[in-house]
Computed example of a mutant assay.
Amino acid sequence: MSSDGEPRHVLICDDHEVLRHGLRAVFRQAPDLTVVAEAADADEALSLAARLRPDVTLVGLGTQGATVQRLVRTLTGMGLPVVLLSGTDDADDLVEALSAGARGCVHTTVSPTRLVEGVRAVARGETVLDACVAGELLHRLDGVRQAGEGSDRSCSGQLTARQLRVADLVAEGLSNAEIAARLRVSRATVKGHITVALRRLGLRDRTQLAIHVHRTGRPTDRGEGRSPGG
């Protein structure tokens, strides 16, 4: 309950109608939480949030990452706490949404009790990170850390030997999972290397990275070995 004894107001935003209805059913079992509205997209959520000023907005990551980031950033800028509901094993969108200001994240496999507790905690001003989600984020951050090793020794626009190797394999058409298996590292580490490579080279996506490799010459042609541990 809020300080005046009234239930905390919750706004649900997700593009899956069945999920929204399921979430509403969960909150019906919590007398101190009331779902005041549902939104199927970011624009609708922003309109409802501005009018209703919910205590917590529960945002699903089913929509495009950029849309979620914009929504989270706008809501938090309005002083409205956001809890993310993630149903993906890819932590990239989570990192971006949390960086945009979200106060917590729970996985879709979480129990109804845990979900309710998480929303209550955020309504109290706390931060919530489900254990399942935390594990994915740690893997993602570990990948970024490993990809960034040696960055101080690299000039702007240049890549480390491992980043060159990953770029080479991207140009060969391998998926992140295939690259991870080839180099005997985690997929998160591969993603981290690609992220750093794109930033340093000023490229937008892996397609541009592959084109860049083919235009400038394969990294292995510049002396990079093919040892799995390289």
Rank of each mutant, 00 (worst) to 15 (best):
L85R: 05
Q146W: 07
S186K: 04
G148Y: 10
E17N: 08
S111A: 15
A180E: 01
D90G: 03
A188K: 01
A171F: 05
R215G: 02
I179T: 07
R53V: 12
R165C: 02
L115H: 01
E44L: 11
G22A: 09
D92T: 09
C155V: 11
R165Y: 12
D205N: 15
R222A: 13
L198M: 08
L129A: 07
L137G: 02
G65Q: 13
L138K: 10
E136I: 05
A180V: 02
G104H: 03
D89I: 05
V170S: 03
G230Y: 08
I194M: 12
K191H: 12
E126C: 03
L138A: 14
K191A: 06
T34L: 11
G230R: 15
V122L: 07
V18H: 07
H21M: 09
V59M: 06
V10F: 07
A25T: 09
T220R: 14
R184C: 06
P228E: 07
Q29C: 06
R53A: 13
G192W: 00
V119Q: 09
V36Y: 04
T207M: 12
L75C: 10
L84G: 01
H212Q: 06
G223H: 04
V128N: 01
A50Y: 04
T108P: 04
H107S: 14
R120S: 03
S156T: 07
A121S: 10
Q208F: 05
T195G: 13
G148A: 14
R140L: 08
G118V: 00
E117Q: 13
T74I: 06
G65I: 08
R222H: 14
G65D: 11
P54T: 13
V18M: 12
L164M: 13
G101I: 09
S156D: 13
R103D: 05
A50C: 05
R124A: 09
T160Y: 07
V72T: 02
S99V: 02
L209T: 01
L84V: 04
S99E: 15
V36P: 01
I211D: 06
R140I: 03
E172T: 03
G229F: 12
D90Y: 06
P31V: 07
V72G: 00
S151R: 15
H107G: 02
D205H: 15
G150L: 10
V190Q: 00
R218N: 05
C13V: 15
R206K: 14
D43G: 12
R226P: 02
P54D: 04
A102S: 11
L11Q: 02
T57F: 03
V72F: 06
V35K: 00
A37C: 06
V18W: 10
Q208G: 14
L46A: 03
D92K: 06
A123N: 07
V26S: 00
L48R: 15
E6Y: 09
L23S: 03
A25N: 08
